[in-house]
Amino acid sequence: MSLEWRKSSYSPNAGDCVEVATGRDVHVRDTKDREAGHITVPAPAWRELLSRLN
């Protein structure tokens, strides 16, 4: 499965950022260490997290 990654709009331009790929689940990785892998979160849990951060 090929994921389409995008940088967080809240990340600075210095490269210290988080990237996400969305689909049935949400995948999150550190831009500075892409080879370390990523975490996968169910989309409903991701939406709940974001709603609590606002």
Rank of each mutant, 00 (worst) to 15 (best):
residue 52 R to Y: 01
residue 47 R to Q: 15
residue 21 A to I: 07
residue 39 I to D: 12
residue 10 Y to R: 09
residue 52 R to V: 10
residue 30 D to I: 03
residue 9 S to L: 11
residue 18 V to S: 05
residue 34 R to Q: 10
residue 37 G to L: 03
residue 24 R to H: 12
residue 18 V to F: 07
residue 3 L to P: 04
residue 48 E to D: 10
residue 5 W to D: 07
residue 41 V to T: 10
residue 11 S to F: 05
residue 48 E to V: 01
residue 13 N to F: 08
residue 18 V to R: 01
residue 12 P to W: 02
residue 38 H to M: 03
residue 9 S to Q: 04
residue 42 P to M: 00
residue 11 S to H: 07
residue 23 G to E: 03
residue 40 T to D: 04
residue 14 A to K: 14
residue 19 E to M: 06
residue 2 S to I: 11
residue 40 T to V: 09
residue 39 I to M: 02
residue 24 R to M: 04
residue 29 R to F: 05
residue 23 G to N: 08
residue 45 A to E: 06
residue 46 W to M: 01
residue 18 V to P: 01
residue 26 V to E: 01
residue 45 A to D: 10
residue 35 E to K: 08
residue 53 L to N: 11
residue 27 H to V: 00
residue 27 H to W: 07
residue 9 S to G: 12
residue 40 T to S: 14
residue 44 P to K: 01
residue 43 A to H: 08
residue 28 V to H: 08
residue 3 L to N: 01
residue 36 A to S: 15
residue 19 E to Q: 15
residue 45 A to C: 00
residue 53 L to V: 14
residue 11 S to V: 08
residue 37 G to W: 01
residue 46 W to T: 09
residue 6 R to M: 08
residue 31 T to M: 09
residue 28 V to R: 02
residue 28 V to L: 15
residue 42 P to V: 03
residue 7 K to M: 10
residue 46 W to A: 04
residue 21 A to L: 13
residue 12 P to A: 11
residue 47 R to D: 15
residue 26 V to G: 04
residue 25 D to L: 06
residue 7 K to F: 06
residue 34 R to S: 10
